[in-house]
Design a protein around this nucleic acid. Structure first.
Lengths: 354, 354
DNA sequence: CTGAAAGCGCTTACAG
DNA sequence: CTGAAAGCGCTTACAG
């Protein structure tokens, strides 16, 4: 077998210079059609595969994209969002010969380190920014590192100072975003519950520092107000089933417990139903429950869980395309995906009549 | 800011040759202590970070490890194994300056392509082999590609032809394995159910082509036989909650339905409980249910799910250490982790008296 | 203990 | 349209 065939082997076999082989392979102008075909044929015959590290060194490109997930492994396992998102990303990357470099970190200090290391090692050419936070420190960090990125959802207006050299009419944040309007589904959910006669409603949300948590909170509360309902009781959690269960317990202990609880993800909703059943409450006759993300399991528990469906897979695909375009061309437009929709199932029903 | 500082900058600033800087940085012998300290100081001052791609080109090493997951995105999302496993891997890799390159593939043909591409691009220095299959084609494939690997669990004896040049007493398969005996917990579970008086027991397993599915099947059936129980009814699924639910429905439709159903993972068990409840069956009074993996949610549904706890996080850590050692030294011992244990919860109880 | 040089396998101006 | 050469930033024999 010997060594891998290199560009030198191809050049020799085709009787041309290495440079010309490189030009032919990367189909750049300045190679006559005949020569190009000959070179390509030889390369195929020799099963030539360019060396990634040699290309990387020359082009200062790693041909990889990075994703740093700052969530507890426990939650990662329970929450189906990331696996689906990653599958979507993969679908695009593998077709483009790019790889995904993944890192899972616990605390914030370590998170910073990973971003810095990915950048200074030039380990990746760009990064996906998920679970966007308020005044997200990663945005200025990546900007200062000169690292391209794409955000899932729009960042704060705070970061609106996009380089003034930009054309007018460009989006107002430093990185392109792929937006999936999750508030649409939350608003539908509020109307759904209000229409069922619920008045005392609780909202068990994810960490407040994450933008999607406060955004959905605001959308839900706004829609309820619009529907003439009192403000919901809001409980903040870390997205784990454990905290979802604990929050449910506390809510049901109230003097006037809610008749409907909306959870920030499906695992918490399923845990909430568990607590209700444990206490002998019927769902939805005595308590309505809804989740978010519409995971597979939501369909198969009893009662099946009303949820809000986003599309992490498509989100991943679009994010990957957007990031690749940004890297290739230096600019990329924001993308707006179809909004999240309410999926009504058996866990929500008419409010109990006192 | 200008260019990144290179080894040349450090050499010039320290007044030595590039080669010596390289020696000092990779602490190899042949550098006087004084010189070494001076070089290290200068490197620190200049915030020197060696270029990964330059090192890669010289050393033919990518400083990355690969994981190819061949599961449907849906299942990936429902099954907590991989996220936890990845978190464990990460914990070791990030400390060693290595990255994890991830790929999620649907079909087998694509899987082969990814392994080949990772190898021919030298994208990774070694690979994790999870969800080991019978006569797993990936083992000869990776061997032929000269790619180091570590397997989760022992592969078939078929691959026992480890190079004869090896010392005697070495493990008999081509790659080191990290073994976590899942049969121990399954056997405990069989005894648990038999002790509760169950006789008609069903086992809803994962894909038969995966070794852990048939291995657990054999262990479970063996332990039941030992306990004087009839052979279990075995149903094969693809690990999705959907198929878990469907299998449950079919089992409950039998003329003599089982009084206990054991599922190959927790999402299927939770879906199974859903179906039982939907049919008005009490769990565990009329039907006992058990899962596998002991995911977070298992604790919080109602009734809480008896399950078998492996430790994917530790599995990931050990697999990463083993693979890194294999790559560094050319050899690595097999690792045996503590066996999986039964976690008894509320979903299993005495067999109903007819 | 230290230096000068070649080499890893590409890409990319620069000549012709 | 094509070739010869330098350069990317490291590592590693080889001399001294």
């Amino acid at each position: 077998m010997g060594r891998k065939t290199t560009i030198t082997d191809v050049a020799r076999a085709a009787g041309v210079s290495k440079g010309l082989v490189s030009f032919a392979l990367n189909d750049r102008p300045g190679v006559s059609p005949d020569t190009r075909d000959r070179i390509l044929d030889v390369a195929r015959e020799l099963d030539y595969r360019p060396s990634l590290s040699a290309r990387s060194l020359s082009t200062r490109t790693s041909y990889a994209l990075g994703l740093v997930i700052a969530r507890d492994p426990e939650i990662l396992g329970a929450d189906p969002f990331f696996p689906s998102f990653i599958a979507g990303v993969e679908r695009v990357l593998s077709a483009e010969g790019r790889a995904l470099v993944l890192s899972v970190v616990g605390d914030d200090a370590h998170e910073q380190t990973v971003y810095r290391t990915f950048a200074s090692d030039a380990r990746v050419d760009g990064m996906f920014l998920t679970d966007l936070r308020h005044d997200d420190p990663r945005i200025p960090l990546l900007q200062s590192l000169g690292m391209p990125a794409v955000t899932l959802g729009d960042p704060d207006a705070r970061h609106a100072a996009r380089a003034s050299a930009d054309d007018a009419g460009r989006t107002a944040h430093p990185y392109p975003s792929v937006v999936l309007d999750d508030t649409a589904g939350v608003v539908e959910l509020a109307h759904h519950l209000a229409g069922l006669g619920h008045r005392r409603i609780a909202h068990v949300i994810g960490p407040r520092r994450m933008m999607h948590a406060t955004r959905r909170d605001a959308a839900f509360a706004g829609a309820l107000a619009e529907a003439g309902c009192p403000a919901p009781i809001v409980v903040e959690t870390d997205f784990t089933a454990a905290e979802g269960a604990a929050a449910t317990g506390r809510l049901l202990d109230l003097a006037e417990p809610p008749t409907a609880i909306v959870f920030g993800n499906d695992p918490m909703a399923i845990a909430g139903i568990g607590i209700a059943h444990e206490r002998g409450l019927q769902v939805p006759r005595e308590l309505s429950v809804a989740g978010f993300d519409d995971s597979e399991l939501a369909r198969y528990v009893f009662p099946s869980v009303t949820s809000v469906r986003s599309d992490p897979l498509v989100w991943g695909e679009q994010a990957a395309r957007t990031l690749l375009q940004l890297i290739a061309t230096g600019a990329s437009d924001d993308v707006e995906l179809p909004p999240a929709r309410l999926v009504t199932r058996a866990s929500t029903g008419p409010a109990p009549t006192p």
